[in-house]
Nucleic acid binder design. Structure first.
Lengths: 192, 192
DNA sequence: TTTAAATTTAGACACTTGTATAAGCAACAA
DNA sequence: TTGTTGCTTATACAAGTGTCTAAATTTAAA
């Protein structure tokens, strides 16, 4: 990403980022990702291509920014006071809520994009990385007798697997059932 | 893929497929995937672009064919007579051997491509799908009390996670240690 | 060996991509 | 008010992409 998201954006930059991401969100609900060109994005957003490239490397970069926008709702920094061993469930629940409130967008996207195509892939990977980042900070894996990085990776993959199952493959499940899946797949007792 | 791999290819097609994939293998060891263009592939292979597009949709398609070539060594159809509950280990071992014998290629690729970039991603996904296909046929998951597709997905993800850990992230481990990781991550007793 | 079917190829097409340059414009401080 | 600084924009460029045509060639069958 060319634009630095760590510093807080000026009013103008905020506006520009918002317009580009809105256009992308719209287009994602209308056609497959391969058919979305930078030209089209700029035409619709009424920006010259040069401006697009001031902010993003390419359309993949913009779509990643879109996931970033969605992921803001996870509120990673809002710490719930729980024992470290409960945080996997806490953050799973937040991701569950985020996926649920974007169900409509996801449905549209899947209408035009393969489940294992580049777009869905980038979505999944974004949130897997996010979850891994969170989990490697908040959980104590010392009891498992496994390399920390390996087990953190495994936990986030499993969390995403369950969310994929529920929200992308449409096997409705409330949080309680989702927790049961997690419990069984991860054999949670061993390290929670 | 434009060319149908299920029918057996003519001598000429065999040759063409081989030349294109060899060129891709070479280039993958020399530069990042983004810099590899269809033009370059054709120049080196001495084919016109039209011929490339007779066989493949794009360079992603060709690289997938490359993984297909590598995956032939898994010898899926060579069935080892074991109880169903052992087949996860049997096929894990075969994948372990395939990854090991392509260690050099993997090292080269990682020199030029991000771990989470499109290329490595396509490699990982190819073998995850392959493993899932195998596991959903050969394992009896009825004891787990979980949806079959979910647990098959989870098993293949875990298998690939361990192989990634060993062969892409370079934490050397022999088969015995690898089995231990699998055992602990999957809590194997529950469904093996 | 001849003929019919299938593939390969040259060349052109409209389009996209990412970069680079220089002109234009806005915000802000002195 | 006047610069200075930094972002936006118009425009152009060299390259790549995927598709299409019709001619050339290969392949396989009779």
């Amino acid at each position: 990403m060319k634009y630095d998201l760590t510093k807080k954006p000026t009013r103008g930059a905020q506006r520009t980022l918002g317009l580009f991401s809105n256009t992308m969100f719209e287009l994602l609900s209308e056609e497959p990702f391969e058919k979305i060109s930078v030209n089209k994005i700029c035409d619709i957003s009424n920006f010259p291509r040069a401006t697009f490239y001031n902010y993003f490397d390419d359309k993949f970069d913009l779509v990643d920014y879109c996931w970033y926008v969605i992921a803001q709702d996870i509120e990673v920094d809002k710490v719930t006071k729980v024992k470290s061993n409960q945080s996997l469930i806490v953050y799973f629940d937040r991701l569950y809520d985020v996926f649920k409130s974007n169900q409509h967008l996801l449905d549209n996207i899947l209408q035009y994009n393969d489940f294992s195509g580049q777009l869905v892939n980038s979505f999944i990977n974004y949130f897997k990385d996010k979850m891994q980042e969170i989990l490697s900070k908040t959980i104590d894996y010392s009891k498992t007798g496994l390399p920390v990085e390996l087990i953190a990776d495994h936990c986030s993959e499993t969390v995403i697997l369950v969310l994929k199952w529920i929200f992308l493959k449409h096997h409705d499940a409330n949080k309680q059932l989702a927790h049961e899946y997690l419990q069984k797949l991860l054999n949670l007792d061993q390290f929670i």
